[in-house]
């Protein structure tokens, strides 16, 4: 029996924009088991990204219970959420979001540094991941010299370099052509299958969504069906 890594009940998230409250999440119930590959789909503005931001500790929930591993996110302080991001989750965004001034290798290295793991010299498991991502020979380049697909694979490498329990990928293929999309998606599937990486992936593309084991549909800040 797999462990539950995410457990969410009655999650609400309200943004205050000026004098107006925007309800991005209106009562989400959701559970993810370790080793799952979940695809999340839904129309624009339905709250998919917001859900990720709450799970990943980028923003606190307004109401409801959110459990990620052993963290109770409703009770977590700012510093606690920083810690969660550092150790438990890894983000991949639509815009590849690499630091433009650093090489691919240094982009990955800085994630290790932030997590305080840069003194661990050898990480054979991560070597395997790099091989699997097929970017080993491109690591000394800066992002501008890499193709979109390569950049996104570097971003994936960076997101999992600290072995987070959960990988959150927000439209990872949104900016890629179909060939690069395929490469990135198969990398995600391989990560899931070979090293058991738990993955949540937001996508607008039904083909991409098919890579996941489970499809979750969001609408108006809720999970439907």
């Amino acid at each position: 029996m797999s462990e539950t890594v995410i457990q969410i009940e009655g999650l609400r998230k309200v943004f205050r924009v000026g004098k107006v409250d925007v309800e991005a999440l209106r009562g989400v119930d959701f559970e993810v088991l370790q080793g799952e590959f979940v695809s999340i789909v839904g129309p624009s503005g339905s709250g998919k990204s917001t859900l990720f931001h709450v799970i990943g500790g980028l923003t606190p929930p307004t109401a409801g219970t959110v459990r990620v591993l052993n963290y109770d996110l409703a009770a977590l302080t700012d510093a606690g959420r920083t810690n969660l991001r550092k150790t438990a989750v890894g983000f991949v965004f639509q815009k590849f979001n690499l630091l433009p001034t650093l090489t691919a290798a240094d982009n990955i290295a800085i994630a290790r540094h932030i997590a305080g793991r840069d003194h661990i010299a050898e990480d054979p498991e991560f070597r395997k991941v790099l091989d699997l991502l097929g970017i080993t020979h491109r690591l000394h380049h800066k992002p501008a010299a890499l193709s979109g697909g390569e950049q996104q694979r570097v971003a994936i490498a960076r997101a999992i370099v600290n072995h987070p329990a959960i990988l959150l990928a927000d439209e990872p293929t949104g900016n890629l052509d179909s060939q690069n999309s395929q490469a990135v998606l198969s990398v995600l599937r391989d990560l899931n299958e070979r090293i058991g990486q738990t993955i949540l992936m937001i996508t607008h593309n039904p083909e991409a969504a098919a890579y996941g084991h489970r499809l979750v549909n969001m609408r108006d800040g809720r999970i439907v069906q």
Partner: peptide, 16 residues
Amino acid sequence: TREIGILKSLGASRWY
């Protein structure tokens, strides 16, 4: 702004 956001999403603290 964006780069700082990236660092924070990677778990960089305020002090960092």
